[in-house]
Simulated assay, not measured.
Amino acid sequence: MKRFLSGSLLAAALLTTQPALSAELAGTHIDDRASVAGNELVLNGVGLRTRFMLKVYTIGLYLPKRSESPVSAITGAGAKRIQIITLRDLSAEDFANALIDGVRKNHGDADLANLQGRLDEFRTTLIAIRAAPNGTQVRIDWLPASGTRLSIGNETRGKDIPGEDFFRALLRIWIGDKPVDEDLKNALLGKR
């Protein structure tokens, strides 16, 4: 009986010291798990995007399983999610242009030519929202059966954009060879 009680107490202690199932950063809440197309994903990392010392947005990267490798995170199979929460009022055009610029920095001319029509479609869909006020939730999901889906709040915007190469191009904005911010890249890869 004594052995059973000490085992039970140890199990209870371990259960109460598990990490929280969410992340708090810059006043935003990002869940530790997400469900995308019926697939359970884990929060790989969360970070803060700043520009000229101003907080712009928090971002979380969700993958089927955690990875510190940018190559594995980008090319690994399965559904994925990029979740962004704005921390200031942004114009949709500025936001879209910054994302497109991040794609351009991480791709050569041939790759960009292949992506261009889909980048234009993505940009047009983003610009149609006009503004992303402080607290706007932007989700960019990779759904293997249909493509890249953009959601603002809980509303899907535009149609799914085909091709895993397109979602991978978006991921490279933050975790590619030329990320928008090296510290942010490390945070999204769970390295800090």
Rank of each mutant, 00 (worst) to 15 (best):
L99M: 14
D31E: 15
G45V: 06
Y62I: 11
N186P: 01
K159Y: 07
F167Y: 08
S69Y: 10
K55T: 12
L41R: 07
Q83D: 02
A92M: 12
A77Q: 15
D183K: 14
S91W: 04
I173R: 00
I30A: 01
R118I: 13
I173N: 01
R33L: 08
G176P: 01
G78I: 11
T50S: 14
I127A: 10
L150T: 13
L115K: 04
L63K: 04
I84P: 00
A79M: 11
V36S: 11
L184D: 09
A34R: 12
V180N: 04
F166Y: 04
I59A: 02
T50Y: 05
A26N: 11
G147L: 07
T16H: 08
A12H: 02
W142G: 02
K105W: 00
L15E: 09
H107Q: 06
N154P: 08
T17L: 14
K159L: 10
D94F: 06
I152L: 05
R130D: 12
G190A: 10
S72P: 05
T148P: 09
I140S: 03
I74H: 00
I85F: 01
T86Q: 06
T16Y: 07
R33S: 09
N186F: 01
L14I: 14
T156K: 05
L171N: 01
K80S: 03
D89P: 09
A23H: 12
R51S: 11
P144G: 10
T86A: 05
V42A: 06
A110E: 13
D120S: 13
I82C: 00
R66H: 06
P179D: 11
A26K: 11
L5S: 06
Q116C: 05
D32H: 10
G7E: 02
A13G: 15
I129E: 14
E155K: 14
G163Y: 03
N114D: 10
Q18G: 07
N134F: 07
V56Q: 12
D109V: 06
H107S: 03
E24D: 12
P144H: 12
K159M: 10
K185T: 01
D165G: 15
N186C: 04
G45H: 01
P70R: 05
A132I: 12
I74T: 15
R123K: 15
A20M: 13
L87V: 09
Q83C: 01
Y62Q: 13
F166S: 03
E40R: 13
M53V: 13
S72Q: 14
G158S: 07
A169L: 02
Q116L: 08
A79Y: 02
K178C: 03
I74G: 01
E164C: 07
P133Y: 00
A187K: 14
K2D: 10
F167M: 07
T50A: 08
D141S: 11
S22K: 05
T86K: 05
L61W: 00
A23V: 15
R66K: 15
G163I: 09
N44H: 07
R3N: 08
D109G: 02
L150R: 13
I140N: 02
I152S: 00
A23Y: 04
T75N: 14
A98N: 05
P70D: 11
R123G: 01
T125M: 03
E155G: 04
T86R: 04
K191G: 06
